[in-house]
């Protein structure tokens, strides 16, 4: 009898945890959408792009590009801050177009590695990828 009760209890707890996780996600998403509505996105200033060198070293970009892009999205879309200053003082527009300005010359630039490493970035859920653009 006590086994049956604990089985039901375990199921209830599992269900409660699932509902709690759903509610948590709902609240997080709700908060971010409210923030989006409150803060108008600043108009992007046209920043001249220095296309001779990347914004950071190849080694750093290889390992941290996803975190940098995430930061850029957060800064530009949610805070309206679109100016990126590199460690050596160059200024860039915080935009995926800044990257693609150079890197879209090879439409496979993103996909070569991501396909090989089986990584599925969420960028192209909204943005048009260089591969789609060339098609």
């Amino acid at each position: 009898m006590s086994n049956r009760i604990s089985a039901i209890l375990a199921l209830l707890i599992a269900g409660a945890m699932f509902v709690a996780a759903l509610l948590f996600m709902q609240s997080v998403h709700g908060a971010s959408s409210a923030l989006r509505a409150a803060a108008p996105v600043a108009v992007a200033r046209q920043v001249p792009i220095d296309s001779t060198r990347c914004i950071a070293s190849t080694v750093y970009m290889k390992s941290h590009h996803m975190q940098l892009l995430n930061q850029w999205r957060h800064d530009s879309v949610r805070k309206g801050n679109r100016a990126h200053v590199t460690s050596d003082g160059r200024r860039f527009d915080k935009s995926l177009n800044t990257c693609l300005g150079c890197h879209a010359s090879n439409p496979m630039f993103c996909f070569m590695c991501h396909e090989y490493a089986n990584v599925k970035p969420t960028c192209w859920n909204c943005h048009i990828s260089p591969m789609e653009a060339t098609r």
Binding site: K62, S63, H64, C113, Y116, A117, V119
Partner: peptide, 9 residues
């Protein structure tokens, strides 16, 4: 700390 996933793969 990150490791180069391309070389690892």
């Amino acid at each position: 700390t990150k490791a180069d996933i391309m070389t690892i793969k």
